[in-house]
Amino acid sequence: MVKLGGFRHVAGLAFVVAASVALAACDIGEITDVTEAGWRAEADAPEGWSEVIANPTDIKVTAYVTGEVFAGGGVLIDPGVDGVPEGLGEDRWVPSLSYLVQHPSGKNVLLDSGVRAGECGYQILIVLDFPCRNKPGQDVVSQLSRDGIGTIDYLVATHFHGDHASGLGPVIERYDPVVLASSNEIEALKSPLRETQGYRYEQFAADMRVEAADNGFLEMPYIGKAADLFADGSVWLLATPGHTPGHMSVFLNASSGPILMTFDAAHLEATYRYNAPGGLGADLEVASDSISKLTALADAMPGVALVFGHEPTQWAGEAIRRDLTTIE
């Protein structure tokens, strides 16, 4: 095994596939399909985003830094794209986030679960290690408990890579939320080859109640497929594949101002600015198209705050908990 900065060949693809199938044989818990989200009906869809942002909702958004993952520059950004500043292709430690959205209805939504407590590294293609580090009490369940959060109704899984989802099991065990993910991401999680794509089986030992976000997808300008979680325009799940086949981004229509969260559709601010997606196993052409759609959506929303998947400059300092509306 090697860290992401390097790569060592193993004895052929057959070894990788065989190891993956053996690991995948472990129980990941029962995945139960449910239908609980308050999706907006097609007939009630807004005419466009201007109608949406004209009616913001008083949602509260809290960001939790759950740890850091060590990622190669080629994963975070393609340094070969014209205009990308020199040095951004270097390996680095970047923050791993989870976000709490508190809706005025009393419903609570967790966007990703971040990394789990203790050992939280994971692998892609069996031979590529993504080291991880965190501090005691930094996992999202500990932070939510300190903040007195007693319920989580929905957990939005933008995708199931370890730096976004290794904390999922403890969240499910503590709160039993409905897990919302795209159908392509759910199928990838069920695949016997999931270990080759960075989906660590032991993350998912808990049983899950899963709802496919596809059930609520509407066709919206600029972005294409988008699901209105509460049918009030406050929380939107956006189909932004490429990083993984079922990756999603999130748009929050907060009273304090609109917030567009790219998650790993754009790891860094520069990934977004220069449309330079990187990644191992990513479909870079599809990923580039998703960035273009996010850019078009942001351009149509003056004053929108952009939050990127792992941008270190947005999380400078020692704070591990922050009101998202303070991010510029």
Rank of each mutant, 00 (worst) to 15 (best):
residue 107 K to H: 08
residue 113 S to D: 07
residue 40 R to L: 15
residue 158 T to E: 01
residue 80 G to I: 00
residue 252 L to V: 00
residue 76 L to F: 04
residue 189 L to M: 13
residue 67 G to A: 02
residue 8 R to Y: 11
residue 257 G to M: 09
residue 181 A to H: 06
residue 54 A to N: 11
residue 278 G to T: 08
residue 125 L to Q: 07
residue 231 A to I: 05
residue 98 S to Q: 07
residue 274 Y to I: 08
residue 180 L to A: 03
residue 315 W to N: 04
residue 303 G to C: 07
residue 45 A to V: 03
residue 102 Q to V: 04
residue 139 D to R: 09
residue 100 L to S: 00
residue 282 A to Y: 10
residue 33 D to H: 13
residue 172 I to P: 00
residue 103 H to M: 06
residue 212 A to Q: 12
residue 322 R to Y: 11
residue 20 S to E: 08
residue 206 A to N: 08
residue 84 V to W: 00
residue 62 T to L: 03
residue 112 D to R: 06
residue 238 L to I: 04
residue 156 V to F: 11
residue 150 G to T: 14
residue 123 Q to K: 11
residue 222 Y to Q: 14
residue 44 D to M: 09
residue 302 P to D: 09
residue 301 M to P: 00
residue 23 L to V: 07
residue 266 A to K: 01
residue 243 H to P: 00
residue 35 T to P: 00
residue 172 I to S: 10
residue 40 R to Y: 13
residue 36 E to Y: 03
residue 247 H to C: 01
residue 132 C to I: 07
residue 140 V to Y: 03
residue 80 G to H: 12
residue 156 V to M: 01
residue 191 S to Y: 03
residue 62 T to I: 11
residue 285 E to W: 02
residue 223 I to S: 00
residue 57 T to C: 12
residue 255 S to D: 14
residue 290 S to I: 10
residue 50 S to M: 05
residue 243 H to K: 10
residue 200 R to H: 13
residue 283 D to T: 03
residue 20 S to R: 05
residue 181 A to P: 11
residue 215 N to T: 11
residue 179 V to I: 12
residue 300 A to K: 03
residue 20 S to P: 09
residue 270 A to T: 02
residue 257 G to I: 09
residue 148 G to H: 14
residue 248 M to D: 12
residue 193 L to I: 07
residue 164 H to Q: 15
residue 252 L to S: 04
residue 128 L to G: 03
residue 105 S to N: 13
residue 54 A to R: 14
residue 33 D to R: 15
residue 162 G to A: 07
residue 19 A to F: 07
residue 143 Q to M: 15
residue 143 Q to E: 14
residue 136 P to M: 13
residue 13 L to H: 11
residue 99 Y to V: 15
residue 154 Y to Q: 00
residue 36 E to K: 14
residue 304 V to F: 07
residue 267 H to D: 12
residue 64 Y to I: 01
residue 233 G to K: 10
residue 28 I to P: 06
residue 154 Y to G: 02
residue 319 A to P: 02
residue 126 I to T: 09
residue 167 G to S: 08
residue 50 S to G: 11
residue 328 E to S: 13
residue 275 N to G: 06
residue 178 V to Y: 04
residue 287 A to R: 06
residue 58 D to R: 15
residue 221 P to L: 09
residue 327 I to T: 13
residue 242 G to A: 06
